[in-house]
Every structure is written in C-alpha cells, then in structure tokens.
C-alpha cells in the first residue's frame, strides 16, 4: 500500500484531554481539527471549583 499519509488529525472533544491532545499534535507539526459540540472548550473541569491535593482553582 503506498497511500499518501495525511499530516493532520482530528480530535473529538474539547475537554482538558482533547485540548492537550490537540496541543501536543499541533506542536509536533501536525495540523489539528479540534471538534467540540458545545460553544466553548474546557469541558467538565471548567465547572469544578477547586482541585486537590493543592486546592488550586480548577479554572
């Protein structure tokens, strides 16, 4: 098989996981389409108040 490799990827979901995946792929030299069904990225973590063990603000 000698199909041409396409240097881009799609990431489905714009929560923290999707954002990190997209950033890592983009920074590695691949074009990324980040797809999110909502109107903003951030996912569930943006709804959390604080995170342990440091009690940092989740935002």
């Amino acid at each position: 098989m000698s199909k041409e490799v396409i240097g881009s990827a799609v990431v489905v979901g714009g929560g923290i996981t999707g954002m990190q995946s997209a950033l890592d792929l983009a920074d590695a030299g691949y074009y990324v389409y980040l797809v999110e069904k909502g109107s903003s990225i951030g996912g569930v973590m943006s709804q959390l108040d604080k995170t342990f063990p440091t009690n940092d603000c989740a935002m």
Binding site: V5, I6, G7, S8, A9, V10, V11, V12, G13, G15, T17, G18, S21, A22, L25, Y30, Y33, G43, V44
Partner: peptide, 15 residues
C-alpha cells in the same frame, strides 16, 4: 468533510 491521518477520541463522560 475532513481528510485526516488519524483520529483521537476524547468525548469525556456524562455525570
């Protein structure tokens, strides 16, 4: 329609 080389699924969860 997007032509891409690979796909990452990170759809998360539902509480």
């Amino acid at each position: 329609k997007l032509n891409v080389g690979s796909i990452v699924l990170s759809p998360g969860f539902k509480p």
